[in-house]
Amino acid sequence: MSTDEFDPTVPELTADDLLVLDDPRFGPGTVAVVTGAASGIGRATAVALAANGLTVVGADIDEDGLEETVGIAADVGAAGEVRPVRTDLTADDEVESMVEAAAEAGDLRYVANIAGMQHIASIPAFPMDRYDLLSDLMVRAPFLVSKLAMPHIRDTDDGVGAIGNMSSVHGHYATKDKPAYITAKHALNGLTRSIAAEGEGTLRGFSVSVGYVLTPLMADQIADTATERGISEREVVEDVMLGQARTTEMMAPAEVANLFVFGFSSHATHLNGGDLLFDGGFTTTYE
């Protein structure tokens, strides 16, 4: 491989990658909603929660990708089930139908708002149609899913549950050429704290912030950033993305999924309004 080449292959998900916990609420009668479940972190999270015995409603617009997620859950021997529900997260009626389907499947206790997108451009050059789509998908949709899910969580026998939001190092600080993404991630942090403020201690809100994760979305972002900055893809990875981190490898999707598993579990009772920051030192160190 030349110094200018980068291998964008997403690591294969295996049972050994997944955190499995003994938790009294992790069983087939408990339901978790996972958005963006057709690929990347959303797929890994859906599979990880199913491996913990939960019934997982996987929401995504990509039907074929959802079916692949169902197959991967079966391949790793998941004790729980992934139920695919094709959902356009920018269409309110489809979101409502998806949440209702989740509530009908058992006790809806957990939501992982993971679906996302990226567009690389400076603020003056940023197309507003892309801004609107990104904002609808990454801010409005998590708000709506949370709004619809919270009454169901409260209606369980003990009102215990959690909503986890996929934030980012870019929810903590900013780099250039990702203004809409950065704005959205900061907004998600506000939603997380709002859920915690209204959850009365039993319905928790938390966020997960990581650095660079090797997903299909990230592979596309590497190519776009290389074009935007006029450098090679390997320079993007080594200098732009990982140059400031102390851990010099990208995370795997399963590593992020395991943070959601922990965050939903009874081991994380005091994680409420807080953020699980696993960034390899990226936001706390300078070159």
Rank of each mutant, 00 (worst) to 15 (best):
E228V: 10
F262V: 05
I163F: 07
E249Q: 12
L188W: 01
R229S: 06
D177P: 00
A254W: 03
R246K: 11
V240S: 03
T202E: 14
S168H: 04
G161V: 01
L188A: 04
S167C: 10
S265C: 08
S266V: 13
A149C: 09
A184F: 01
T269I: 11
S194F: 07
G243L: 07
R234A: 10
A219N: 05
H267L: 15
H172A: 07
R234L: 00
A162Y: 11
A219Q: 04
I222C: 03
F260T: 12
H172M: 13
I222H: 04
L191Q: 09
V160G: 10
Q221M: 15
S266K: 12
I153E: 08
G171T: 02
G159W: 01
G205Q: 06
I231C: 01
I182Q: 08
G190T: 00
G190L: 00
T225D: 05
D239F: 06
M251V: 06
G211D: 09
Y173W: 12
M150T: 14
D155N: 15
T248F: 01
V169Q: 08
A252W: 13
M150Q: 14
V160E: 12
D224E: 13
S265T: 06
T202Q: 12
S194K: 08
Y173T: 06
R193L: 01
G201C: 04
G243W: 07
E228P: 02
A245K: 02
G171C: 02
P216T: 05
S207E: 04
R234Q: 09
T248G: 06
E255S: 10
T215Q: 03
L191M: 10
S167I: 08
D177M: 07
T247Q: 12
N165Q: 13
M241S: 14
P179C: 03
L214Y: 08
Y181S: 11
S209M: 06
H172G: 08
A254E: 07
A162K: 13
V237W: 00
A245P: 11
S168M: 01
A245D: 04
P151M: 04
F260N: 11
V210C: 11
S266H: 13
L188Q: 14
G164I: 14
V261S: 10
T247M: 14
G205M: 01
D155I: 07
A226N: 04
Y173Q: 15
G164C: 12
I163G: 05
E233Q: 11
T175S: 09
T202Y: 08
T202K: 14
V236M: 02
V208E: 09
D155Q: 15
H170C: 09
L217Y: 03
V210L: 05
V237Q: 02
I153A: 13
I222N: 03
I195Q: 00
G211P: 11
L191K: 05
E255T: 05
E235D: 14
G199F: 01
A254P: 05
A254H: 09
L203G: 12
T202D: 13
N258I: 09
H152R: 15
S266Q: 13
L191I: 10
G161F: 00
A162D: 10
A162M: 14
M251F: 11
S209F: 12
A219F: 03
H172W: 10
E228T: 09
L217G: 07
A245W: 02
M251E: 15
